[in-house]
Simulated scan of single mutants.
Amino acid sequence: MTTVRIDIVSDIACPWCAIGYARLEKAMAELKDEMTFSIEWHAFELNPDPAGDGEPILQALSRKYGRSPEEMQANQAHMMEIASGLGLNFSKLQERHTRNTFDAHRLVKWAGEQGRQTEMKMACFEAYFGHAENIASPEVLVKCAESIGLDGDEARAVLASDRYATTVREDEARYQQAGVSAVPAYIVNQKYMISGAQEPDTLVGAFREIASEP
Rank of each mutant, 00 (worst) to 15 (best):
M1V: 10
T2F: 10
V4Y: 07
I8H: 03
I12K: 00
A13H: 00
P15C: 01
C17D: 03
I19C: 04
L24E: 14
L24K: 08
A27H: 13
M28Y: 02
A29K: 14
E30L: 13
E30V: 11
L31W: 01
K32Y: 07
D33C: 09
M35K: 03
M35G: 05
T36N: 15
T36D: 14
T36I: 06
F37P: 02
F37R: 00
W41F: 14
F44C: 00
E45F: 03
L46N: 00
N47V: 15
N47D: 13
N47A: 11
D49Y: 00
D49M: 01
A51K: 12
Q59M: 13
S62K: 01
S62E: 03
R63I: 06
R63K: 15
R63Y: 03
K64W: 09
K64V: 02
K64H: 12
Y65G: 01
G66L: 12
G66S: 11
E70C: 10
E70M: 02
M72K: 11
M79D: 11
A83L: 08
S84C: 11
L86E: 12
L86F: 11
L88A: 03
S91P: 03
L93T: 02
E95G: 06
H97T: 10
T98V: 07
A104H: 03
H105P: 05
V108R: 03
W110D: 07
G112K: 09
G115Y: 04
R116A: 13
Q117T: 11
T118D: 09
E119A: 15
E119Y: 09
M122D: 15
F125G: 02
F125A: 04
E126K: 15
A127P: 01
A127D: 00
A127E: 04
G130R: 04
A132V: 06
N134T: 05
I135V: 10
A136H: 06
S137N: 13
S137Y: 02
K143L: 03
K143N: 12
C144H: 04
C144D: 09
S147I: 06
D151Y: 00
D151S: 01
G152D: 06
G152C: 05
D153K: 15
E154N: 08
E154D: 12
E154C: 03
V158K: 05
V158F: 06
A160G: 14
S161F: 08
S161Q: 07
T166R: 13
R169G: 01
E170Q: 15
R174T: 05
Q176L: 14
A178Y: 11
S181Y: 07
V183A: 04
V183E: 06
P184L: 01
Y186F: 13
Q190L: 08
Y192C: 04
Y192V: 12
Y192W: 13
M193Q: 13
S195Q: 14
S195Y: 12
Q198R: 13
E199I: 07
T202R: 11
L203S: 05
V204S: 05
G205Y: 04
A206G: 04
F207I: 08
E209F: 11
E209V: 09
E209L: 05
A211R: 13
A211S: 12
